[in-house]
Design a protein around this nucleic acid. Structure first.
Length: 689
RNA sequence: GCCGCUGUAGCUCAGCGGUAGAGCGCACCCUUGGUAAGGGUGAGGUCGCGGGUUCAAGUCCCGCCAGCGGCUCCA
């Protein structure tokens, strides 16, 4: 006799087992109509789920009480649409083998193995969507049935899909107690299409209001690149066509603030095929942004007692043998550079590329490597003299440019590149100094995010994966370092997640991760503890006991890389930089040629105040000049005409405020703008209006 | 690296076997205009690169390069 507790606390009692749908109907016909699923004791399940014991039940409908789209409802919907898509695809390509089709935050995908002679192409989407529309129109119920483990496995073996057999084995392994396997037929079991599936689903295909097959990708079975290659078909679904359209529109809008689009439009950077993939050419405008950021952080470093160093872009292979970068990370580095004389000798010898590679790997042959990290150079600076414990911490900072061979498919605008400049520094300290030093590093990152108004970030403490052998160094030191990172993160006062497997190969780290407009995550600032390099390079300082001790290193880059950070920053501001970062801070718009002389006076005055200012000398009307100035997202546009010339004023327009703010004495504007610039936006010209 | 899509003027894109196009931008001329596009004229292209099919190839086929979306990777 189930007693069912509803979300409002009321209890319904039945004298027989009932389905969630029955309960919904007992509450009201409209609720039953709107229901797409249920939550029993917090677990999402089918509306047809039978309740034979006391439980807490809530009915899942398209929208929450507040009228928002219900994430649980969308989850059900998308999972169900994945089935409908899979059925449609199998109608078109009967030999396609299904693998795995889960819902996602914004849609769903289905991994499918297609026969070699019939790969899926985007050209198939129309036909797939047409078939899906038919299935939806038929409004067939999602019908669940279960088999015992033995029966189920027998059925799957008979059908012969290794993927489904694997799925079932995994499901049985994960299950506790007596495990059963479940199928969902889209219609009647035995008659209609079905799929091994844990569920749950919406009641019937007719609930799928709007859907779209989005894109194709290749994926790997179990995410393992040595395993089968599958085709991943992405799609999305909503309850209404309107919601789908709103989502597609949102994607388009995001595209407009994509740093690659804005970078071109605002001429911030350029990537040139003939220079090479993943290599950023900073144009004059983008260089201003970068330089301002560097100036900003350099001032903070000075406050924190850093000293600046400069090191070259290459180093001897042997250096990287000692550091552990070569040959272990050979695949992700540019190939070594070999000396000319040796090259000639090897040529005369008839040495093959393979031999050359072997000799370099073995250490028989030396050469140079483009540096993948700055630390070995900095370590050598530290080691170049003796240090007393009184000197520590030594903090060596450099905007160091490094090169890494990223896979071509990984490259992405400014956010994933092959050459980038880290705002790098290495801190050499005594073990007991780690805590405060880590906190100093974290405070830098906090200052950056606060000054730039970036609040949407998450903090990740990257720990080693106990099952992996890629980490080097003493486990006891790892434990200490991991604990130091946890403690520092905790002192930060924000939420953080601990993620095994996210550590660097030489030590654990604290990362600051942000999302781009597409929703992809990028690691920006990072702070890493390292017991390993001091060991490898046999670093020491003389302690109070007059004996040598091993220092600990901290690697840290609060921006991460200037490239990635600027890429993310462009998107954060949608290209509309605050005054202090804006490449062009002020544009003077003379009303006609007659006011050109006055415009030039204004420019001189502002330039003398240290501001970046231009004049629009084009033969256009002000309307057009405003349009163009706004398109380039210039923070302040100053309209000047005869009236202003007479009164010594400028007429101010601020970006984002679509109106004339009014006239202001030119010298007052210059002072206020300079103040806005110097204070990095703490006071603004706008506030004077 | 893998799968799919894309590559035509500085930018955004149309053209998809038969004489290379549009809008913006650029140059010049007219206009001298007070708050989101005044008017005209003109310059500008090995249609990503290399092969092939064809009487004829941006257009069809093959290979490469690059970009995009994912997967894998990410010191």
């Amino acid at each position: 006799m189930p007693r069912i507790t509803l979300p409002d606390g009321s209890v319904k009692e039945f004298d027989h087992a009932v389905s969630a749908r029955d309960v919904a109907e007992s509450i009201g016909a409209r609720l039953a109509q709107a229901a797409v699923g249920a939550k029993v004791d917090g677990e999402l399940c089918d509306l047809s789920t039978v309740l034979d014991h006391d439980c807490a039940l809530s009915i899942v409908t398209e929208k929450t009480r507040e009228g928002q789209a219900d994430p649980d409802a969308l989850y059900l919907l998308r999972h169900s649409t994945a089935h409908v898509m899979a059925e449609a695809i199998q109608r078109i390509v009967p030999a396609a083998q299904l693998v795995y089709g889960p819902p996602l935050e914004n849609g769903f995908y289905y991994d499918i193995a297609f026969p070699e002679d019939r790969p899926l192409k985007e050209g198939d989407f129309e036909a797939i969507e047409a078939e899906m529309a038919k299935i939806v129109r038929e409004d067939r119920p999602f019908t669940r049935y279960e088999l015992s483990a033995d029966e189920g496995m027998a059925k799957l073996r008979e059908e012969g899909s290794k993927y489904k057999i694997d799925n079932a084995e995994r499901a049985l392994q994960a299950a506790e107690g007596e495990a059963r396997l479940s199928w969902y037929a889209t219609g009647q079991p035995g008659k209609d299409w079905e799929d091994l599936c844990r569920g749950p689903h919406v009641p019937s295909t007719g609930r799928i209001g709007a859907f779209k097959v989005m894109s194709l990708a290749s994926s790997y079975w179990h995410g393992d690149e040595h395993s089968d290659r599958l085709t991943r078909v992405y799609g999305t679904a909503f309850f209404s066509k309107k919601d789908l359209e709103a989502y597609l529109h949102q994607l388009e809008e995001a595209r407009k603030r994509d740093h690659r689009v804005l970078g071109k439009q605002l001429r911030l950077f350029h990537i040139d095929e003939s220079v090479g993939q993943g290599l950023i050419l900073w144009t004059p405008a983008g260089s201003v942004v970068r330089k301002e950021l560097q100036r900003f952080i350099a001032a903070e470093l000075e406050k924190q007692g850093y000293t600046e160093v400069f090191t070259p872009h290459i180093g001897k292979l042997d250096l990287y043998r000692t550091s552990g970068h070569f040959p272990y990370y050979q695949d992700s580095q540019f190939p070594p550079i070999i000396e000319r004389e040796q090259m000639e000798l090897l040529k005369a010898e008839g040495c093959s590329c393979a031999e050359l590679s072997n000799r370099m790997t073995s250490g028989e042959l030396d050469g140079f490597m483009l540096k993948p990290m700055n630390c070995p150079h900095h370590v050598k600076i530290f080691a170049s003299q003796q240090h007393s414990y009184r000197d520590l911490p030594v903090r060596l900072a450099e905007f160091g440019t490094v090169y890494r061979w990223e896979q071509s498919g990984e490259l992405n605008g400014m956010t994933r590149v092959r050459g980038f400049t880290q705002d790098d520094a290495h801190l050499f300290c005594m073990p007991e100094q780690i805590g405060p030093e880590l906190q100093g590093c974290l405070s830098l990152v906090k200052i950056i995010f606060k000054t730039l108004g970036m609040s949407e970030y998450r903090v990740r403490v990257g720990l080693r994966d106990p099952d992996s052998d890629k980490y080097i160094g003493d486990p006891a030191n790892w434990d200490k370092a991991e604990q130091a990172c946890r403690d520092a993160a905790r002192s930060l006062g924000v939420d953080f997640s601990e993620e095994p497997g996210e550590a660097a190969f030489y030590g654990p780290k604290i990362d600051f991760v942000v999302k781009d407009v597409i929703g992809r995550e990028w690691q920006l600032g990072t702070v890493q503890v390292d017991y390993n390099l001091p060991e490898r390079f046999d670093l020491s300082y003389i302690g109070p006991d007059n004996r040598p001790h091993r220092p600990v290193m901290i690697h840290r880059a609060p921006f991460g890389s200037m490239e990635r950070f600027c890429g993310v920053l462009i998107e954060h501001f949608a290209g509309a930089f605050p005054l202090w970062l804006a490449p062009e801070q002020i544009r003077v718009l003379p009303i006609s040629e007659k006011s050109l002389d006055y415009a030039r006076q204004i420019r001189e005055m502002l330039a003398a105040a240290g501001l970046r200012v231009t004049i629009d000398e084009s033969n256009e009307r002000v309307q057009a000049k405003i349009k163009h100035g706004s398109a380039m997202k210039v923070p302040y546009l100053l309209v000047v005409g005869p009236r202003d010339a007479e009164n010594g004023t400028v007429s101010v327009r601020a970006f984002g405020i679509e109106k004339d703010l009014g006239a202001m004495p030119a010298d007052q504007f210059a002072r206020a703008a300079a103040e806005e610039y110097q204070s990095r936006g703490k006071s603004t010209v706008k506030s004077l209006f």
